[in-house]
């Protein structure tokens, strides 16, 4: 497995096994980190919520992953009735599949030969967390959030996705109450496979719209 060696590392800061030392993360807490701890501890001390409830909520969020969305997409590829329900009300359709997405409002947008959808939140980092789990770090970066609406094709090229001029790019800016999931086009080579196999073709990036569904590697 390759490692990230830092060539600018000063001599003498290499471990005996030849690895550069990574600096310890010894920064003090920020103002808002302190504030979050203070409010959380107050809520627990005053009995509004328990530490166990907080831990359970963290566990619930950590258990959500792109695999949930991949199951939704694979079913949409193979079940026209579900697909129609998903396009009509994606939140209700995913709830009916058994996913606990809380109060999230969800819209599914479908890629085709003529249209490619990509999702961004220019104002903050809105993401369908209640279905797909936490967003990737780049999704929250200022570079992605600003460039996705200004030069989406260039951004997609950097993700390795080059689109024909004939394909319309639709950038969905999650400005308010809705969250979005892209239904990527089903690759020809995957047609006819059973759903449990199809799930492996659906990547997180393909559901954000910065990639395509592809054969499992």
């Amino acid at each position: 497995m390759p490692h990230d060696h830092n060539d600018s590392q000063a001599p003498g800061t290499i471990s005996p096994s030849g690895h550069p030392y990574r600096p310890d993360d010894d920064r003090p807490l920020t103002y808002w980190q302190n504030m979050e701890i203070a409010v959380r501890e107050l809520l627990v001390e005053k009995g509004y919520i328990t530490a166990l409830q907080i831990q359970n909520q963290i566990d619930t969020m950590d258990a959500r992953s792109p695999t949930n969305g991949a199951n939704v997409v694979a079913r949409a590829w193979t079940d026209p009735e579900f697909k129609a329900a998903l396009m009509n009300d994606a939140a209700q359709a995913t709830r009916d599949m058994g996913f606990d997405i809380g109060p999230m409002h969800l819209i599914a947008v479908e890629n085709s030969d003529m249209v490619h959808n990509v999702v961004v939140c220019t104002l903050c980092s809105c993401y369908p967390r209640n279905l797909l789990g936490l967003p990737p770090d780049w999704y929250k970066s200022r570079a992605y959030r600003s460039r996705a609406v200004i030069e989406p094709r260039k951004v997609l090229t950097e993700f390795g996705l080059v689109l024909s001029e004939n394909v319309q790019v639709r950038v969905h800016d999650s400005t308010a109450d809705m969250r979005y999931i892209v239904i990527p086009s089903q690759p020809e080579a995957s047609k006819g496979l059973p759903v449990p196999d199809l799930v492996k073709w659906v990547t997180r990036d393909s559901m954000i719209g910065v990639g395509k569904a592809h054969a499992p590697t």
Binding site: I150, P152, V169, V171, H172, T175
Partner: peptide, 29 residues
Amino acid sequence: ELLRVRFKMSEVWGANAENPNDVIEAEIY
């Protein structure tokens, strides 16, 4: 009321649009 509005890139970015026929869709109150 919340509405989804579709904007052409040419409308948003003018002559600097990367591709004038691409669109941005956003939720606007």
